[in-house]
Computed example of a mutant assay.
Amino acid sequence: MSVPTPDARRPNPDHVAFVGGGNMARSLIGGLVGGGLPAAAIRVAEPDEGKRRALAADFGVQVFADAAAAADGAPVWVLAVKPQAMREVCSGLAALARAQRPLAVSIAAGITLAQLARWLGDGTATVRAMPNTPALLGAGMTGLCANAQVDAEGRARAEAILAAAGRTAWIEDEALMDAVTAVSGSGPAYAFLLAEALEDAARAQGLPAETARLLVQQTLLGAARMLAESGESPATLRQQVTSPGGTTQAALETFEAGGLRRLVAAAVAAAQRRGGELSALHD
């Protein structure tokens, strides 16, 4: 697994066709345009007329109602439709894929490389990507996995697209992609649940709701920045905040007594299992 540094130089992905213009596609398009890719090099297929108008107005990209019209001639396709629609969309693009041999990058959760290749046509270079919702703010995390048909240039192109919305990591064993989904794909919801619980606890201690929210928001933001920027492990940072016999130790001992680590491990395992089940549903 490779994790590039945030300021690593990445190649321009050239012309890109997005099939689907929802929120995740918008975040990637915004990142690409903001990073210097000409808007004229981006095509977007989106059936919703209102979304097409907004994409054209906001980013200056070319918009189409038909997927094949957007994909025709583009060397890279970003498949950004819902998982339940992926088979139909890919089947409709299969003849074009066989003729043009594009690089197809899917950001649909639970859709495997084998499924993509089968629906688009064997021999299609495909990348499976699992972004998460902080990509909407340019702070996303995406796991990437490629089939054997994707060469070094294809990997660089796929990474350039997903890196427009945050950090990336290559996963060489596709079997681990469900674990990526369980950790980083679903992970923001775990952080939001912790924030909810902290806010509830703060209010229970008598703090005003507005103050409780501010305390929790800034605390989690600051902790996340320390994790990302300090170079220290989570365990080291935890120890630095924990004075023997102090308030933090009292709280952490309560977490440990309640089995927090076991609960987190069980939750991630449950999400991983469900990811595999969802993949099978789309076969």
Rank of each mutant, 00 (worst) to 15 (best):
Q62N: 12
T133W: 02
L176Y: 08
A54W: 03
D66M: 12
T168S: 03
H282L: 14
G246W: 03
V216Q: 05
Q84G: 15
R87N: 10
V19Q: 00
L207I: 15
G222K: 08
A148K: 14
N12L: 03
G166L: 00
S279N: 09
A191M: 14
E159A: 01
V268K: 01
R101V: 04
V78M: 14
D72R: 09
V81T: 10
A56T: 08
R26G: 12
D173Q: 02
A195Q: 11
L113Y: 10
D200W: 01
R26P: 05
E174Y: 02
A99K: 15
E88P: 00
Q100T: 10
E49M: 14
Q240M: 08
D122G: 12
P208V: 09
R10M: 08
G36K: 06
A182L: 02
A224V: 13
M141K: 05
L194N: 07
Q249S: 04
Q149I: 07
G110I: 10
Q239M: 13
A197I: 03
A265P: 00
R98M: 08
E196R: 07
A191R: 09
A280K: 15
M86Y: 11
M86C: 14
E199L: 13
T126Q: 11
I29H: 10
V19K: 01
P83G: 11
E253V: 05
E172A: 04
T219W: 07
M141Y: 02
P11S: 04
L221S: 10
L116A: 08
L215K: 03
L221Y: 03
A179E: 00
A108K: 01
L96P: 07
L137M: 03
R167H: 09
A269D: 09
R167Q: 10
A204R: 08
D151I: 14
T247P: 02
R87T: 13
A41H: 07
A189F: 02
P83M: 12
P131K: 02
P75K: 10
A39L: 01
E159F: 01
V264C: 03
V241I: 10
R203E: 15
A67R: 10
R203W: 04
A85E: 12
R262S: 14
T211A: 14
V105F: 06
A164D: 00
A160E: 00
A146K: 10
Q149Y: 12
D14N: 12
S2D: 14
L252C: 02
E256W: 05
K51E: 08
A45R: 14
P188N: 07
A265Q: 14
D14H: 09
R98N: 07
A175C: 05
A224E: 07
V150S: 08
A169V: 15
T211Y: 03
Q218I: 11
T124V: 07
G50S: 02
L136S: 09
L116E: 09
F18E: 06
M177E: 09
T112Q: 04
A197L: 02
V81E: 04
L28P: 07
D151Q: 13
R52N: 15
A94W: 02
A148V: 12
A135Y: 01
G187P: 02
E256N: 05
E49R: 15
L162P: 10
A135E: 06
A85S: 13
L96R: 14
R155A: 05
S230H: 05
R26A: 15
A68S: 13
R128C: 11
D14P: 06
G154S: 05
R203T: 15
C145T: 12
Q240W: 01
R167G: 03
V241H: 06
G34C: 02
